[in-house]
Amino acid sequence: MFLQKLRYRIFKQNKISFFSRNQPISQKSQSDILNLLKSDKNEVHEGYRIVAGIVLSRTPIILRDPHPFEREYYLYQQRLEHIHAPPFPVDFYFKKGSVAEKKWREKKEREKAEASLAFGSRKTKNKTSSEKNGEEETIDSSDVSSDEEEIKIANKITSADLTNDVKSLDRALQHTLYLIVKKPRETHSWQFPQGGVEKTETLVQAASRELEEECGNCMDVWFVGRRPIGYYKYDYPKCFVKDNIEYKGAKVFFMAAHIFAGQVKVDNKEIIDFAWVTKQEMKNYVHTEYYEAVKDMLSEH
C-alpha cells in the first residue's frame, strides 16, 4: 500500500510538470535564440529535446509464491472454514446407489484416513481459498479429474530461468519484466527504448513509432493510456553538446505499455542489444542515476 502511495505521488508530480502541448514556449531570450537555431522538426522545450520513452512490460504470468506466514494463515483459515461449513448435501448431488455416489464416498473415506494420519497437511476440497495459492489449486483440479486423465503441472521455473536467458520472455514468470535496450556507446548504454518527439506527433504516436524503428514490428503492444507515467530530465555530455548546439539535454516522458506476443528484433544501428529484466535485475544494467529516476514507476512484483 505504501509503495502504491509513493508511486501515485510520483505519478502525479510528473503530471503537473510544466510541459504541455498547448502552452506557448516561454519567451526568454535564450530560448528565442534556440528557437531560431532549431531547424529540424523535433519538439524542443527550453533548450531540451522532448523525448518519449517506452516502459514496455510483460506482466506476471503466474501467481507469486506466498510467504510462509501467508501460507500458514490461509491453511488455517481453510481448516476453520471446513469445520464451520454446512454438511455437504450428498442426496442432492448424487443419485442414491449410483456409481458416482459410491466413488465419492470412497474418496471421502480415503481423505478422512489421510487426514487422521497427518492432521492439516491434507488439502480439502475448498474452492474459495484455493485461488490464493495457484500451485495447490492445480493439484486440486487434478484430484477431481484423476480418474479420467492425469493433469501435468508445468514447472514454475522454466529452462530460460535456469540458463538465465535475459532475452527470453518465458523467464521469471512471477515477476514483471521490463524491456531495456543497449546503445552503441560506453556510458549510459542500457536504458529504456526512447526517441525524439516530432512536431506533429503526440507522445503515444512518437513512442509507438520509435518502438517500431528500434525494436522491429514483430511485437503485439498495447499502450496504457495516452498520459506519461514518468519524467526524467538530463543534460547531454559536453562533447556531445559541441556537435549539436541546439539541445542542452533531453526531457524524457515515459509511456507505459504491455507486450502480449512477439519479440524484439535488433536493428544494429540505434541499438545493439536488448534484455528483459525485473526491477531488481535492472540495477545491474542501467546507470545508478538513471535507475534512481525510473525505479518508482516500476512494479515490485
Binding site: Q4, F11, A256, S299
Partner: peptide, 17 residues
C-alpha cells in the same frame, strides 16, 4: 485478486487519472 493487485490496479491508476 492477485492479478488485480499486481497488474490491473497500476493500469487503472494510469487510465483513470
Amino acid at each position: 485478486e492477485d492479478f488485480y493487485h499486481s497488474t490491473l490496479s497500476t493500469d487503472l491508476m494510469i487510465l483513470s487519472y
